[in-house]
């Protein structure tokens, strides 16, 4: 009773509140400074589709067009040709339409050789619709998307 009264008189609860905010002023901030630092994506995040090569840099895609059939949005337009070197079908045309893609990941699941995967890249905003259309050499995983969308090669 007396202690509570003294607490009120000396504004102890208010001072406690102030000490909490003082402490918070010097703790680590949660803000991520976006263009300089990019937050790491979640494990199952589905970003833009990329075509991958195997470890030795050899083409994985066999132009089987299963992804084209699996795609519910009709994003793909693939044409293949038999390669004389390894006697396998290889794509000569691999057109992919980002403006149709819904990032469902069915193409990735359907691919028998793991040649196409949805990457973690999420920065796909652009003012030019023609940049939402990708041809074969733009589909490879080492293609510079920063330059493609924003005209700068800074990563």
């Amino acid at each position: 009773m007396i202690i509570n009264f003294l607490k009120k008189v000396f504004l102890i609860d208010l001072l406690q509140g102030l000490s909490v905010t003082l402490k918070y002023q010097f703790t680590h901030k949660v803000t991520i400074q976006y263009p300089e630092k990019v937050k790491e994506s979640r494990e199952r995040f589905r970003g833009i589709l990329r075509v991958y090569r195997d470890g030795e840099g050899k083409q994985l895609c066999i132009a089987c067009k299963i992804c084209q059939k699996a795609c519910p949005e009709d994003c793909f337009d693939i044409e293949g040709q038999k390669n004389t070197e390894d006697n396998k079908m290889r794509p000569v045309k691999f057109d992919w339409k980002l403006y149709r893609c819904s990032f469902c990941g069915l193409c990735q699941e359907a691919c028998p050789t793991d040649a196409i995967k949805l990457s973690k890249e999420f920065r796909m905003a652009t003012r030019d619709k023609s940049k939402l259309f990708f041809t074969l050499d733009q589909m490879y995983s080492d293609y510079d998307l920063n330059k493609h969308f924003r005209g700068e090669s800074k990563k």
Binding site: T21, Y24, Q25, T27, H28, K29, V30, T31, Q33
Partner: peptide
């Protein structure tokens, strides 16, 4: 700035 720091922003 100070209010942001209190709220763990920058």
């Amino acid at each position: 700035r100070v209010v942001a720091f209190i709220q763990l922003r920058l």
